[in-house]
Design a protein around this nucleic acid. Structure first.
Lengths: 121, 121
DNA sequence: CAAATTGTGTATTCCGTGTATACACAATGT
DNA sequence: ACATTGTGTATACACGGAATACACAATTTG
């Protein structure tokens, strides 16, 4: 478990957890079949409620990134590299749509966005 | 007042208001010196609380986009085209930093982001 | 000057979400 | 049987967003 929780962030904890684990799975850091730590243990480690961890794990399952077996644990799902890329892009695009809406509301063109993006990436 | 409030959005109303008015000012739709509608009237029109409108207006003032005169109203500030562009980019960049952090957490490169961006912009 | 208009400030209330704690139940493994 | 792990539920608290209402300050208008 390599996760950082920021209590000052505006994002809820369960969402921070979900994003970071998602990124680790889709980035290849966590291999298929890997068993996530028990929710109680994770809750202890992160000084966080069990429910909070569970919420994050639920979201991971909803996205098909892990599968859960009661009594055993939660395991990173198995998928092909292609599928992994597809899921990753799907998640990023979902976020990106909202971002773009914001940029467009200011009348920014695609080129302008790319220019700004290049400055700080 | 040309504003759309979405109660299903995850963004709070005052923020939706602020973003839309900001965009209209920085996009040139609202000229310098233009008098925004009285907060009570805006609240009625949008079926929203006075406080909610005030919160949005406060944020506009904080960003230097309007100036307020008690007893008179709230007026769009005057600034040069250059300054307008600077403020606009400043606001967009502020948002963009968070967006980029998300993309990076998935290991996306700048080129990949641009590619995805181009698909849906 | 008096009244209407507009912005400001404050108090109270309500609701939903995020979070924590605790306990009981279900499935698995030793 | 017992320990471990996930699930479900109930309760409680804090906080932010939002609404309503009222009093006050500054400006405009009659």
């Amino acid at each position: 478990m390599n996760v950082t929780i920021s209590s000052t962030s505006d994002k809820p904890i369960y969402q921070q957890l979900h994003e970071q684990i998602s990124a680790q799975i889709l980035g290849g850091e966590l291999e298929s079949g890997y068993c996530l730590p028990p929710i109680r243990q994770a809750a202890l480690e992160l000084h966080v409620s069990v429910i909070t961890v569970k919420k994050a794990w639920e979201e991971l399952e909803r996205n098909g990134l892990i599968h859960t077996v009661t009594g055993k644990g939660c395991f990173v799902a198995e998928f092909s590299p292609d599928e992994m890329l597809r899921i990753r892009n799907e998640m990023v695009l979902k976020q990106m749509e909202g971002d773009i809406q914001y940029y467009k509301s200011f009348g920014l063109t695609l080129d302008e966005v790319i220019a700004l993006l290049g400055k700080i990436y």
